[in-house]
Structures are given as C-alpha cells and as structure tokens.
Design a protein around this nucleic acid. Sequence first.
DNA 1: GGCCGTTACGGCCTCCGTAATCATG
DNA 2: CATGATTACGGAGGCCGTAACGGCC
Lengths: 145, 145
Amino acid sequence: MDLRQLEYFLAVVEHGGVHRAAAALRVAQPSLSQSLRRLERDLQTDLFHRVGRGLVLAPAGEALVGPARQMLRTLGSAYDAVREVRDLEAGRIDVAALADLSADPAAIWVAQFRVANPRVSARIEERGAVSQVAELVPPASARSA
Amino acid sequence: MDLRQLEYFLAVVEHGGVHRAAAALRVAQPSLSQSLRRLERDLQTDLFHRVGRGLVLAPAGEALVGPARQMLRTLGSAYDAVREVRDLEAGRIDVAALADLSADPAAIWVAQFRVANPRVSARIEERGAVSQVAELVPPASARSA
DNA sequence: GGCCGTTACGGCCTCCGTAATCATG
DNA sequence: CATGATTACGGAGGCCGTAACGGCC
C-alpha cells in the first residue's frame, strides 16, 4: 500500500469517477486506473463495483476510506512538523574556546554562522585551559536536545 | 514521503543504528542508508546527526517520530479493516426469480454460492411475472450498501 | 584491524504518459 | 457517435542487493 495510491483512491471516491479525479489531480486517466488496480491487487479485493461506465464503492472500499483519510491527514501534519523545526530552527548556541583560538578563527566562524542563521543567537566564552572549557558543557543527563 | 521509508526510519530510531535495524528488518544496510538519505532529501533536512560511527536524532527527526508512528498504526488498521470485510463478507442475499428459472438454473447457482460463501445466507423468492419481481427490490433511498 | 555507515553500480518493479481498445448511454 | 474506463507499451525513477570505500574505535 502506498500513500500516493491512497490519495488517488480518495480522489476517485470524492469526485465519483476516474475521469473527474484525474482532472482534479492533473494526471492522466490511465495512471489513476492503474493505481486503483495495483491497490486492489495489493489488498486482494475489489474496492469498487464497476457498474456501467462508472464506479461505486464496494464494502472493502468503504472500509478503506476512513483509515486512508486519517493517514493523509497525518502525512500533512508530518510535513508541517518537520518544516517547522527546519525553517525556524531557532535557539541559542554557546561557543567555548581557548583565548588564543577565540581571537582569530572562532570569532570569524561565529560571525559567519550568525549571518547564515539569523534566528540563532551565539555567544563566545573564553577560558585559558582545556579543563575550564570542558566544565562549561553540562553532563548528558542535564541536556535536552 | 513513503510508508516504507517511515518504517525504516522508525526502525533505525528504535534500534539505535542502521546495522541493528537492518538485521531486524532482514534487509541490507545500504538499503536502509539510502532510504534515510532519500527521506532526508525529500524533507530537505537532516533527520539524524552523524556523530562518530553512530546516529542520534536531530530535531527534525524527533518531530517526525510521532506522525510516523501514527501513520504506521493507521496503516495496520487499514489492512485489518479491509481484510475483515474481505474475509468475513457476511450478510444476507435475496434472490428473486421467475418460477421457471427458479426450478433449474437459479437453485443450482444459489447452492454453489452457499458452498463458496458459507457466511452468507441466501433465500429464493418465486414470482410469476417480471413486474412482481421488480417490486421486491426496495428503492435506492432505502438501501444501505 | 574491526566495525559501522556510506557510495557505486546493476537489475527489477513501480509509476506515468500517449495511443489504442472496449463498453455503455 | 460521445463518454468514460481499461489495456498496451515505452521511458524515467525508486528500491534492493552485492561490492567497494571511508571513517572512527
């Protein structure tokens, strides 16, 4: 079973025919017809009764409508959730470095980073020894993500 | 986005690595690796941080776990719902026929049907004229499915 | 060197479109 | 005939496996 097949299946159900559904989806009719066939083959049952030159939902098709709608809704929310964290990606980043590093390379890197990620605030901590730098990062148990 | 990609993604998350997930899914490691890459390309963001020789969830990956689980759950329920109506397919069927038809062919057809579909009860109504047969089928507004 | 993840490549299947066929009103 | 659904067929892309490569312990 494939999400695209479910999308096409629902389009056929809602538009009441392959022809209208294909026009709404901007695809060719044979593509929809083949997709339905594959879906029916996968489910080992007919989803529509072929009556005359039209289609009417078979019992198995009715059983599929609900789950199919829910899956496509969840699909949309999945894209939304990912897009949100991808686009916003806001937060704060702390850069700890030894003093001599912070002078030349680190400051430039941070500057470039801030230009590239304007929604993230950056801060530099200077320390003289490696052990002091290490103390600045909290233990794993206290980190969130 | 593809349901198979989501299944693989969740397997990697839950088993904590491509190697273990591939073993659990009985597929080759490169297939999983490619699947993850394609999913990340589709979503235009990294789902994991590649740290050392392991993978840890990136923010976008965390956002995807919930919807992915829900979609796979719904996928299972969709298969179940379809299988139920396909296998059981219980109900009642009424056969209306003219008297001379009910004698020879119809009775044999019904008998064969009952052998093939033991969960469906069948009944034969005999009538003398076509108009009387037609009266037995309720109007479309009264039919359920 | 061993382990784990990632390309590289070849085969198979799915998906789509165009063209042709069939059935129905 | 006109409409709508279904095959026939060729090309593009996805998925999987085997083989080869790269990077940490």
